[in-house]
Design a protein around this nucleic acid. Sequence first.
DNA 1: CTAATTTTGGACTGAATAGTCCAAAAACCA
DNA 2: TGGTTTTTGGACTATTCAGTCCAAAATTAG
Lengths: 166, 166
Amino acid sequence: MKVFWQKGFEATSLDDLTKAMGLSRSSFYSAFGCKQSLFLQALEHYSKNGIRNLKQVADTAEDDAVDAMMQALANPKGGPQGCMLINCITELAPHDEQVAAIGRRHLENIEETFAKVIDPEHPEAVRDKASAYSSLAIGTLALRKAGMPAERIANTLKQAKTILST
Amino acid sequence: MKVFWQKGFEATSLDDLTKAMGLSRSSFYSAFGCKQSLFLQALEHYSKNGIRNLKQVADTAEDDAVDAMMQALANPKGGPQGCMLINCITELAPHDEQVAAIGRRHLENIEETFAKVIDPEHPEAVRDKASAYSSLAIGTLALRKAGMPAERIANTLKQAKTILST
DNA sequence: CTAATTTTGGACTGAATAGTCCAAAAACCA
DNA sequence: TGGTTTTTGGACTATTCAGTCCAAAATTAG
């Protein structure tokens, strides 16, 4: 998963994978069938894990759960490589419906988590607002990847959050 | 440019390029030196053209210039392949400083265009808000690529714009 | 301990890749 | 026209890739 996260699907070679996994080629193919299959599993794993983390961030936030979620989304643990799912959506979704489907589900889960935090009683009513928070956080990932100063990104997020939360 | 836009850098082969350009391999290499060099030129061209279009959208908008710009950014002409620069930032920026630099400049130009539209007198004062609009529009590109219903995306944008503009 | 089964290393295949090279064709020019 | 320069087609090289295959090693079972 980490290798795919860092390099994307096409740029990851079988040698990269077998080396990272400490597996021989034959073991790899007998276990996973093909590169694509492992990739989809890695993507699913990343998504599940990411959503779980996001919910945990929301639950354990001290005062402002929405802010904590935005921070978590805009500064993914992986470092400069951003969010694996956004990377993969960008690289593959237009040509690969399976990836697109996992991506859609992930994005919907993010939005749903936002909605429940914003209005636990009527999450449906704040769906568009939740979607806006989500899209905003995802948009800043591009700034980050392009090497924009972290301070600028933080200001953007802060400003937007202040306005959106009114 | 169109081929790189559609397929990304790595996935575009020399055969793809020479066929699209109607050029032989030798002519290609004598004209551009290498694949990377043509790619950077294509990226520059895309950026210049995109910013010019965006400014034109802002200038010729009937009532709400910010809204028109958001629509233009969230629905790039190329179709489902989104914005070439965001694609390339995602694919290459973390490992290629030249691409990252072009990406940064492009994003800054977008933000500047927003800022001048929001407050022509004091664009500096609304920089963060401009950045928020920009990030939001860019974020929705991921939704689009993942195949989210266009209506949902439009609602997100509308909702966010309404709130951000207050 | 032995025999059957599973797992492993890594050589191998065929296809695709970016970039080079040169003889032949085309364009140019005096 | 005849000679020079530029451009072109496409064969070629060296590398990389995903995926296959099998003999040897390891594991398991009786």
